[in-house]
Design a protein around this nucleic acid. Structure first.
Length: 556
RNA sequence: UGGGCUGUAGUAUAAUGGUAGUACAGCGGAUUCUGGUUCCGUAUGUGGGGGUUCGACUCCUCCCAGCCCAGCCA
């Protein structure tokens, strides 16, 4: 795959392991989402890293659902995660695993730990555990139940499993070090009692293992060689290693990397959920959302997301990636694959006075200048057309080289025209403009070789159909919400959706399929919305605009 | 500050004791039937001090800054 040329500190570690023969050259990774929400672009980084690393080293990557908390996890999320990972272009073959597949083994590991004198059943309440836990600067105090006999622990743990106790009454804790400067080593809870229905095991269990206990052992059971996770788990690593060492099982190596942050975007599940719940967006797949399903609906290609993930690199320092890089990768791919069409977003009527009133001719237009195989199509042209209002100026600055009274421009694939007359209403608003064309410039070139400074897109009025176009802005008004003093709510862009109704389009645009990606010439890349489009009534989402040198000049 | 981690152009990364490079963004130009694409050029950087060394982004040391950890969440 394309990431062969990319390297990072994790691959350096793998190279060292391969050289020392640590795993006999075998590389096995896993992508371990908790099925409690939708995947977003941050997960894409992890997916590309885990699957990409496996591909690079000829290894395998498992998809493992980390489903140890039945109160939060649902099957709907499992389905969406599967769909999104597949859509991104990765395949886990038959290796779709669930931490819940290992509940029986994990239980046995816990029993083993008790037998080793390394775990005990604790009767402290949640509040008491917190009180005994100490603080960052003060050591904790040992639980009064810490020195129970192995026999008693075994018996109580079994009774926990059999449902004899109410929720929260007992926990199983690892017996490590209550005075450790690492809070995670102060006798962490490894099993809790929960009477909840689990999406896969139903009501079979009423005790559920905690993350720290589950994750390392799941990695071990799957013989994961390199367990890649985000930075916040760095302080968990001693515990990860402790379980594997005490139980003397296959030892995976946890390696942490920095999660993705993107400018003008939020990635936290909580904040994303808030945007959905409070109605700032229409749902998880709203085209403004950084979720995989949102990006998909927006018109992103999996290739562009993978390219982006390759190019941002992998490191340990917290970082904030410029959205512009993602958009660059997007445009780069879309430029190669998106067929071009003409549509006018803000129409201005143009009447070509010297063109026959009853005539319609069909002109050949190239579908994609970047792709000869894309062929061409015939576009209808007639006396009355729409052009973009921004493409005409009565009193234009020097740098404006579109249509002005007295200048000549080209209508793409059609003719050269000149503006002769401007019709206005009583308030001085321009209603329409009258032009003349040069019949000799048919197809867009003049036989005398004279040049024009601009080429305009246009739509013939009699054959036009009108459609809805949606433009999206960033969900946030600031690039990095973490550095702002304000509440998250105040940073939300309340004006991130712009709907343009009745935009005239060339006829060919009527027959596109949902999800199809195209370019409106000179405007941007769009796709047919997969939810709100109807047959012959497409709704177009702006995926990303074309770079706009003119707009940039005006902003300066 | 109890512990852990991280500091390289605006941003993201490379250089693993030997010329600080690449990409995006920026700026300037060329080409162009998309002010798109493409091409060329250009400015900007090793958090700070001390040390080791012929030579330090790299090793040592002190300092500074930022991030993570006190869920029966993951």
């Amino acid at each position: 795959m394309e990431n062969k040329e990319f390297t990072n500190f994790i691959h350096d570690i793998i190279d060292e392991d391969n050289e020392s023969g640590k795993h006999g050259g075998r590389v096995q990774t896993r992508f371990p989402p908790e099925p409690n929400g939708y995947l977003h672009i941050g997960h894409a980084k992890s997916i590309c890293l885990n699957f990409g690393t496996a591909i690079k080293y000829g290894g395998k990557c498992n998809l493992r659902f980390d489903d140890t908390n039945p109160s939060k996890e649902e099957d709907e999320y499992v389905r969406s995660i599967r769909e999104d990972v597949h859509w991104l272009g990765f395949d886990w073959a038959e290796r779709e695993f669930y931490a819940s597949d290992y509940f029986e083994e994990l239980y046995e590991f816990a029993v083993e730990l008790i037998k080793l004198g390394k775990a005990y059943v604790c009767e402290l309440s949640a509040t008491e555990i917190r009180e005994f836990h100490g603080t960052l600067k003060e050591p904790g105090k040992p639980s009064p139940w810490r020195e129970r006999s192995i026999e008693e622990n075994l018996e109580l743990f079994e009774r926990m499993r059999s449902g004899e106790f109410e929720e929260g009454k007992y926990t199983l804790r690892a017996k490590i070090d209550m005075s450790s400067p690492n809070m995670h080593m102060r006798d962490p809870v490894i099993y809790r009692i929960m009477y909840a229905h689990h999406h896969r095991t139903g009501n079979k269990w009423c005790i559920y293992p905690m993350y720290d206990f589950t994750h390392c052992l799941s990695d071990s059971l799957e013989r994961i060689t390199h367990s890649l996770c985000t930075l916040e788990f760095e302080v968990h690593r001693p515990l990860y290693d402790w379980f594997l060492d005490e139980l003397e099982v296959f030892h995976s190596r946890q390696i942490e990397f920095a999660r993705l942050n993107l400018t003008y975007t939020v990635m936290s599940k909580r904040k994303l959920l808030m945007l959905v719940k409070e109605g700032y967006v229409s749902g998880w797949d709203d085209p403004r959302m950084p979720t995989i399903c949102g990006l998909r609906r927006r018109g992103y290609t999996p290739e562009s997301i993978r390219e982006f993930c390759d190019r941002i690199g992998v490191a340990k320092r917290d970082s904030m990636v410029d959205l512009a890089l993602l958009e660059h990768c997007l445009r780069d791919h879309l430029n190669k694959i998106a067929p071009r069409y003409m549509a006018v977003l803000n129409p201005l009527k143009v009447i070509i006075d010297n063109y026959p009133a009853d005539k319609t001719e069909y002109l050949e237009a190239i579908n994609n200048p970047e792709d000869p195989d894309a062929g061409s199509r015939m576009v209808p042209f007639s006396r009355e057309i729409y052009i973009e209002r921004e493409d005409f100026m009565e009193d234009a600055p020097k740098k404006f080289y579109r249509l002005t009274p007295g200048s000549e421009v080209r209508l793409r694939y059609a003719y050269f025209i000149q503006c002769e007359n401007v019709v206005k209403d009583a308030e001085g608003n321009i209603l329409e403009i009258h032009c003349t064309y040069d019949p000799a410039s048919s197809g867009g070139n003049s036989p005398d070789g004279r040049k024009v400074k601009a080429t305009l897109h246009w739509v013939s009025i009699p054959t036009a159909f009108k459609a809805e176009v949606r433009h999206f802005d960033n969900l946030l008004t600031v690039s990095d919400p973490a550095t702002e003093d304000k509440d998250f709510l105040e940073l939300i862009n309340k004006d991130s959706l712009h709907i343009l109704e009745n935009c005239p389009m060339e006829p060919a645009l009527k027959d596109l399929k949902a999800g199809e990606r195209i370019q409106f010439e000179r405007i941007g890349y769009y796709c047919v919305d997969s939810k709100d489009s109807a047959p012959e009534k497409p709704v177009f989402n702006r995926t990303v605009g074309l770079k706009d040198e003119w707009a940039r000049m005006q902003n300066r």
